[in-house]
Design a protein around this nucleic acid. Structure first.
Lengths: 156, 156
DNA sequence: CTGAATATTTGACAAGGTGAACCTTTCATG
DNA sequence: CATGAAAGGTTCACCTTGTCAAATATTCAG
């Protein structure tokens, strides 16, 4: 499976891969914290923000939300309850299949989500260290990685 | 602050930065899921795994754990309670300052953490899409980003 | 010795998450 | 058409994370 036999790729992981994984862990932690903070600043929880973000693409059945977020449907019930209680989403029966509930962001819900997305300083702070060429390079590398691993969850 | 005036860097965020942020969100989600799963496979929660990972570097006061994980110290109490209950860590008063409790991983705790780290397929699957040169490139870019943003939390 | 500051714990409480049981609606099949 | 199995959601009981405020123990400056 390895491209280059130059290194003993038989070992669990080579040094560079290992370091990249560690760096990503740091990145993940950083991103996560920022996201949570940005959500909290709008008195949303991370999970609520994620659901709202999903709904930017249009109404969606509960089941689909649960799948995308890889959690149990019963969990989504509560999250949507709270969002609904605050007027950020609505829940309507799908006319096609009345078992299905279609969750849709309200105007204020959509606005909150858009605002949050805009506010992610993450984009400015650490990414500012790179110039255009490097950002493009990074983009291409990330694309390849995600492409290769059934990407999902467009949460920001 | 921008290096290249070629693009109007005055706007909130340029297209590439925006895309990079979205890609990172995907990466973060992916990594997060994998980490949680890998932990669950050893019947640890994500939070417990993170604490164990921190302790790989040696014993550490509760307070320090809380700071590194950016949460309230009272939260750590519970997590360490559960880890201690399962024999993964010990809690001892620091002889230097008896207010301080030093948390240390036991042998089995350290082993579990090491095992978990090894098992992160994340390294193999999506990263396998890149060759050595690209992995190095990615490493360098990530280093720069994290350097620039008070890095922390070496959790994996 | 006194009082302020520090490290941790405790308790009450909200939210995220799971799993099992339950209702409603759909759908296949006899 | 009737019936039963399967699918989408909800409810309930339960655990873990996380917060905040109050309590305890220890240190340290005067």
């Amino acid at each position: 499976m390895e491209t280059k036999p130059t290194q003993e790729a038989t070992a669990p992981t080579d040094a560079i891969t290992r370091e990249v994984v560690d760096l990503m862990a740091g990145l993940v932690a950083l991103f996560h914290r920022e996201y949570e903070e940005a959500a909290a600043a709008r008195s949303l929880t991370g999970a609520q923000a994620k659901v709202l973000a999903l709904l930017r693409r249009g109404p969606m059945p509960m089941r689909h939300i649960a799948q995308t977020l890889s959690c149990e449907p019963s969990n989504i019930t509560g999250i949507v309850d709270r969002l609904e209680g605050r007027g950020f989403v609505t829940r309507e029966a799908d006319p096609q299949d009345r078992r299905v509930k279609l969750v849709a962001a309200t105007d204020s819900g959509g606005a909150a989500s858009e605002e949050l997305r805009e506010s992610l300083n993450f984009a400015r702070e650490p990414l500012a260290a790179l110039d255009d060429r490097e950002r493009t390079q990074l983009r291409d590398l990330l694309r390849r990685i995600l492409e290769h691993a059934g990407e999902d969850d467009p949460r920001a």
